[in-house]
Structure formats: C-alpha cells, structure tokens
Write a protein that binds this DNA or RNA. Structure first.
Lengths: 114, 114
DNA sequence: ATAATGGTCAACCAAATGGTTGAATATAAC
DNA sequence: GTTATATTCAACCATTTGGTTGACCATTAT
C-alpha cells in the first residue's frame, strides 16, 4: 500500500535532491553534469536520481552512453494538491512566494514571472 | 544546515503521519484519541506526533494529564510554496483538486469548498 | 491512600537511508 | 584495438526510522 505520496515526500525530504530538482529547472542534464556541483561521489548522485525517478519527479532517457535527466514537475501535482487541502492559507500568496524565492532559491530568480 | 523543509517533507513522507494530520483537520485531540484508530502502540503514535511537532505541523499543549494536539497548517506554507515554484501546472486546478480529494480523502469531502 | 488513566522514556530490533569505495558494463574516441 | 568516458552495481558502513515492550511519572478518580 505504498502511496505515491510516500515516494514524493520522501524524495523531497533530502536537500541534495531538492537542489538537484532546482538545478534541473534550468535544463535537461546528463548525470555527470547533475553531479558536478556536489561534493559527493557520482554513485551517490546516481542513487539520488534513482529515488527522484522512483517518485516520478524526474525521467531519464539513455542516449548513447549518456543518460539525460529531465524534470517532471507534474509529479508534484498530487503532493501539492494534498498540501493545499490543508490550506488555511490563501491558495497562492504571491508576495510570500516571491520573498521565499529570493531567500531560498536565488539561482532561479528569473523564473518567478512564469 | 537542517532546513525546515527537511523536517516538513520527512514528516509528510509517512502515511500514518499524513493520516494523523487528516484526522486533526476535524478537531483538536488528545494523544490517546489520535492513536485510537491506529493498530499501533501508543508509544509509536507518540513518536509520530513528536516528528510532526518537530516539523511544526502540529502543536501540543498539556492540560492536566491530557496533551492536546492541534493542527498547524501554516507550517505547510513554505513547503507548499516551494513546490509551487515547480508549478508547470496551473496554480490550483480545482477540477483536479476535487477529483483528488474524493479519491484520496473521502473523510473530509466537505472541506473542498473552503 | 490506592488505583486507574494519559503519556513519555529507554532499551531494543529490523529495515531503510545516505554515503563510501572498487569492480563492471557499455559506448565513444583515438 | 586500446583507451577514456558515462554510469551503474555490489559490498560495506554508520545513522536514522518505525516499530515493539516494560518501566516510569503525573494527574485524576474512587
């Protein structure tokens, strides 16, 4: 009875994996490129990517000897919806959203206008 | 460098804890009452509640020998916002929301009109 | 005063996590 | 054909997690 939510929330609970997701916002990437900024073995990153894939948060496609990783943001939908059901807070408070973005994820500032 | 998100997502990754949160949507409750529907020792539930409290998702207040548990939905805000930043999907798709609710959380159907 | 209730603590256990290394595999390049 | 690159696999390790049980501490009830 392992819920999909189990996998998604578990995947998101690790900061390395959240960083990977943020990185992948920019573009699809090979495993090696995903791993580059982290002070951690390639094998470790490979495991993290496996967990993200199990959760459906990314997909991977083999092309030649390189495996491309692609963000699958739709997978976050169910989890996001689940959380919103507790939404005593306004559905999306854009002010808070922007403040949070600049605080936590300065790298992707440009994205806040999506 | 333990992020608040670590605790929140980790807390949400367990189905028992998500069930507890859903239960607490209904009303504040004593630990024993929270535990009642679960086939699990009181001590186990007590631990789960500790993890939810660490994440800020609930608060607890001792009154006499009874410890009351209260949902703190605001704590989900940062996590929810974080997820929305990946929102390739429309901020809140209400159709999907309702369908998801009736599928996953029939108990709180009445809430979908909040 | 004694007994029952509400809850946590401590010790323990099995399984899962997050990391490491070194070997292995497959593709690409020279 | 040999070498280098991209990635995973397997074995291992320490720590965390999710659960148990039994003792313990308060508070309430008799």
């Amino acid at each position: 009875m392992e819920s999909r939510l189990d996998y998604i929330f578990a995947a998101l609970a690790d900061p390395t994996r959240r960083d990977i997701l943020v990185t992948l916002l920019e573009d699809d990437m090979a495993v090696t490129d995903v791993a580059e900024p982290f002070e951690m073995s390639l094998a470790a990153i490979s495991k993290h990517l496996g967990i993200l894939r199990r959760a459906g948060l990314i997909s991977q496609e083999q092309r030649g000897r390189v495996k491309w990783c692609k963000l699958e943001p739709d997978a976050m939908r169910d989890a996001s919806i689940w959380m919103q059901s507790f939404g005593q807070f306004e559905a999306v408070n854009l002010d808070a959203f922007e403040k949070f973005l600049s605080r936590e994820m300065p790298l992707i500032q440009g994205r806040s206008e999506t």
